[in-house]
C-alpha cells in the first residue's frame, strides 16, 4: 500500500511517520501532485499557524491538489482545520472541503486553559447538532442503549475513549461531525465527508486507541 504524507510548512510530522511505521507502513513525504494523486491513502497532519500554512499550500498549488484527491484523506489537527472553509486564526480562507468555520476557544472559567492540551474523551456521533439535524443519523445507531459508530474510522473505538489533543482553535459542531469532545463547549473531534476524514486530536499520540484509528484509516 502506498501512503503519502503531504509535505508543507507545518511541523512535527515525525510522530505520524513513526506511528505508521509501527503499523508496518512506510509512508512517503511529498509535495508532488502526481505522487499524492497516485497514493492509496493520503495523510495531511501538522502543527502550525493557519495563515502561513495556507499561504504555503497555495504557493505550491497544493490547495487544488488536496481538494481534488479521490482516495481516503485524513487531516490531523491543523490539517483538519485547514480542510474547513475559514479559520479565525489569522482570518484565513482555507480549503473549504468541510463547510464549517474554525473558531478560537473563548475561556469561560479559570479552569478553561487554552491551548486545550492533554487527554480528553471522544463521543461518537455529532452530539447536540445531531438532535437538531436528525437526518445525520446514518453514521451511528443505538445498540443495547449504547451509541455504536458505523463510520469506519472509529470502528472498535468506544464512546468515552481518551485521545490526545493540542489546539487553541476548534471546529464547531456541523453536519460533517462524526465524533465530539467537550472542552469549554462541545465541538468536532472528527469530521467526515465523502473521501475526506479529519481528526482534531492526534491519533499518532493517542496510545492504543489512536493506533486503532490509524489502522482503520489504512483499511478504508
Amino acid at each position: 500500500m502506498k501512503v503519502a504524507i503531504v509535505k508543507y510548512n507545518a511541523g512535527n510530522i515525525y510522530s505520524v511517520i513513526h506511528a505508521l511505521n509501527r503499523l508496518g507502513v512506510n509512508p512517503i513525504l511529498t509535495d508532488d501532485a502526481a505522487e499524492l494523486r497516485a497514493a492509496d491513502k493520503v495523510l495531511f497532519p501538522g502543527q502550525g499557524e493557519a495563515r502561513q500554512a495556507m499561504g504555503y499550500l497555495r504557493e505550491h498549488g497544493l490547495d487544488e491538489v488536496i481538494r481534488s484527491l479521490q482516495q481516503p484523506v485524513l487531516g490531523i489537527c491543523i490539517g483538519q482545520q485547514l480542510m474547513c472553509r475559514h479559520s479565525e486564526e489569522g482570518d484565513t480562507d482555507c480549503l473549504g472541503i468541510f463547510p464549517v468555520d474554525v473558531k478560537r476557544f473563548c475561556p469561560q472559567r479559570h479552569e478553561d486553559k487554552v491551548p486545550h492540551m492533554g487527554w480528553n474523551q471522544v463521543k461518537m456521533g455529532n452530539g447536540e447538532f445531531f438532535k437538531r439535524e436528525a437526518s445525520q443519523s446514518a453514521e451511528r445507531t443505538m445498540e443495547n442503549g449504547q451509541w455504536k459508530m458505523d463510520n469506519g474510522l472509529f470502528s472498535g473505538v468506544n464512546d468515552g475513549d481518551y485521545v490526545y489533543f493540542v489546539h487553541s482553535y476548534y471546529v464547531p459542531l456541523c453536519a460533517e461531525t462524526i465524533a465530539t469532545t467537550d472542552y469549554i463547549l462541545p465541538y468536532s473531534a472528527a469530521l467526515h465527508k465523502d473521501n475526506f476524514y479529519a481528526t482534531q486530536f492526534h491519533p499518532e499520540k493517542s496510545g492504543a486507541v489512536g493506533e486503532r484509528i490509524l489502522e482503520n484509516f489504512l483499511k478504508l
Partner: peptide
C-alpha cells in the same frame, strides 16, 4: 523513543 512510544 519517538519511534517506539505512542504517547506524548
Amino acid at each position: 523513543v519517538a519511534a517506539t512510544v505512542n504517547i506524548p
